[in-house]
Amino acid sequence: MPRVQLALTSAGFRRYATYRQATVAGAFTNTVFGFLRCYILLSVAATAGGTVAGYGGPELATYVWMGQGLLAVVASWDQLDLAERVRSGDVVADLLRPVDPLWTYLWGELGRACFMVLTRFLVPTLIGAIAFGLYRPQHAVTYALFALSTLAAVLISFCCRYLIGLSAFWLLDIRGVTVFWVFVSGFASGLYFPLAVLPGWLSTALWVATPFPGLMQGPLDVMVERGGIGNALLVCVGQVAWVGILLLVCKWAQARAVRKLVVQGG
């Protein structure tokens, strides 16, 4: 069985590696946004006396630049083609295969994420490090925790987008749900501003009750060692728990959805 997973992962990797021009274009855009957002946050920090919600200059630069890099890795904006396959009926072929489509998509996504780490993540991180200087973690274990946290972020993002794709079984057209998801995941994941800027009760509620901070703010807080190793471990445990819960929800929703499936003419 590991052969199948390896094949699916490398297929996902190669699928995205084909689009070289798009990769260059994407990295360019991330870089422009990196400059833009980094200057804004540094200017805010200068007005507020050096820090924004406890993040100093290098922490803010890391938050912005590695955040721009993570954007393509976590890919919460790109929808899976599942919904389109549900609408066109092609999903029937996926369901007939010996591997559950949930796992097929998941391994493919991991391949995609690997490619993005090597390209779209590395480029903004390097440019940010050269242009602004990023935060250097004090402990070596932080790098390992960051890798784990990023993997969990990729899986959380995948589960949410898989659920959105499954919603096509009921809605057929998922554009509405997608726009809503882009709104919520953007704001609640800490993409637009660090979540710590929000009032205490709101950011706590987001951390405890929703998986969204695990998409962006989680890995970034681990990287800048906010709250030390203890907090980083807590973040990782929370993310892994969400991955477990969301995978179960995906399984359940898929079982319900398949029962709704009517093959044309049947």
Binding site: I40, L41, V44, A45, A46, T47, A48, G49, V52, A53, F193, V197, L198
Partner: peptide, 8 residues
């Protein structure tokens, strides 16, 4: 939100 951090 960013305005509120430093009051300007």
């Amino acid at each position: 939100v960013l305005f509120s951090v430093g009051g300007g």
